[in-house]
Amino acid sequence: MTLAYSPNAAALLTFAVATVLTALVVPIVRRLGLHWGLTDTPDSRKQHTKPMVRLGGIGIVIGFSLALSLTWILGGFAQLEPSKDALIWTTLGGALCFFVIGLADDLFALPPLPRLLGQLLVSLVVWQEGVRIGSIELPFGWMGSVPSALQLPDWLSLLATMVWLVGITNAINWLDGLDGLAAGVSGIAAVGLLSVSFSLHQPAAGLLAAALAGSCLGFLRHNFNPARIFMGDGGSYFLGFALAAISIVGPAKGLTSVSLLLPLLILSLPLADMSAVIMGRLSEGHSPFYPDRRHLHHRLLRTGLSQRRTVLLIYAFTQWLASVALVLVNAEMRFLWLALATALLIWVLVSTRRELQRQDRPSARLR
């Protein structure tokens, strides 16, 4: 059996294997975590009310890694250039290193600075191995003697790559505050990157995105509200780095007015949330890492939305942004209809909030 001449089949197999393996491994991880007492204790900032195992990222990592390995064994990488093949393994290696940093924080509660320094060091290594934002392709075939593609100097390439990798990783990590939120948003973003990557003829990024989307779906089987396990910082670091690296390997490899916009659009919700939180903390004289309840999901909960409705609303916004990105890259009506349908779903979720609140008030008085 070979998948060498069918990138679509390779992506489909990768997605399916990642989904099944992750769904099977996560319950085993949960049982081991309960046996060893590796749980997350509730506090005033958290939504759960009983100790929860927070090692679900191990299942995500295993599903993702084995799915890519099986695709490689079956010849799914055969059509790729050797450099693209190497980028897949570099991305996997970097994601595993970020996972280890997050897992160490889950187990030993590392201070913010060592975590940040570790992330920067891993980003430096993967940049040296070729996962980098290396050039800017000017739109419309720039006139005159200026070349159509400008190579970034190494220092600027390194800075842009580090900011991108570390920024998106921490944006996903900070989004992980409600059952199923980070996994669902990451899965939707991965599907968007999968579609965009194949549209831009970047099968290496497509295979990575397929594995990531499958891992997120398999994990959601156990993490959607009411969750039975959390992914922990290890899982959210892994997802965040993988999303950031996939967008570099694929859509943002050469930065154009369109290719840079696509991953920014797809990931704009967690990035905007992180930026708003940092600015709010700094304006009050706190550290950017100061814990509080000013994240988007906290604000939505304070409006009266339930956990599930809050998560579904953020899912819908992420799906709408991904649909808009697909419209930009494909200019096809089916994606425009998807964007409009998602916008309608957002309207329904928001407009029914007051009705649900009115229904809840009598029951609250009875209690």
Rank of each mutant, 00 (worst) to 15 (best):
E129W: 10
G130P: 01
G141D: 09
L116Y: 08
Q128P: 06
S148R: 03
P147H: 05
P147T: 05
L138H: 13
G134V: 11
M143N: 12
G130D: 00
S145W: 06
P114A: 00
V126T: 12
F140T: 06
S135H: 10
L121W: 13
V125C: 08
Q119A: 08
L116R: 07
S135C: 12
S123C: 03
P139E: 03
S148A: 06
R132S: 09
V125G: 05
L120M: 10
R115Y: 05
L124M: 12
L124W: 11
S145L: 07
L116F: 13
E129I: 01
V125I: 14
G118A: 06
E137Q: 12
L120H: 03
G144H: 08
G130L: 02
V125L: 13
V122D: 03
S123E: 02
P139C: 02
V122M: 07
W127K: 03
Q119W: 05
I136D: 08
E137T: 14
P114V: 01
L113Q: 13
S123Q: 03
P114I: 00
L117K: 00
P139V: 02
P139G: 02
Q119S: 09
R115T: 07
E137G: 06
P139N: 01
M143G: 09
E137H: 05
G144P: 15
G130V: 01
R115L: 05
L113P: 02
R115P: 14
E137M: 06
A149Q: 15
S145T: 12
L138W: 13
P114S: 01
V122C: 07
S145Q: 10
S123D: 00
Q128A: 13
V126W: 08
L117P: 00
P147D: 06
S148H: 06
L138N: 13
Q128G: 14
P147C: 06
S135D: 14
L120C: 07
L138G: 14
R115I: 04
I133Y: 10
S135T: 13
L113V: 15
Q128F: 14
L113Y: 11
V122P: 02
W142F: 15
A149N: 15
P114M: 00
M143E: 13
S123I: 01
W142C: 12
G141V: 06
G144V: 09
A149M: 15
V126P: 12
P114H: 01
P114Q: 00
G141T: 05
P147V: 06
V131L: 01
L124K: 04
R115S: 08
G144N: 09
L138S: 11
I136H: 10
I136A: 12
S135M: 13
S135G: 13
G118F: 04
L120D: 03
V131H: 00
I133V: 15
I133Q: 10
L120G: 02
I136Y: 12
E129H: 05
L138Y: 13
L121A: 15
L116Q: 05
V131W: 02
F140P: 07
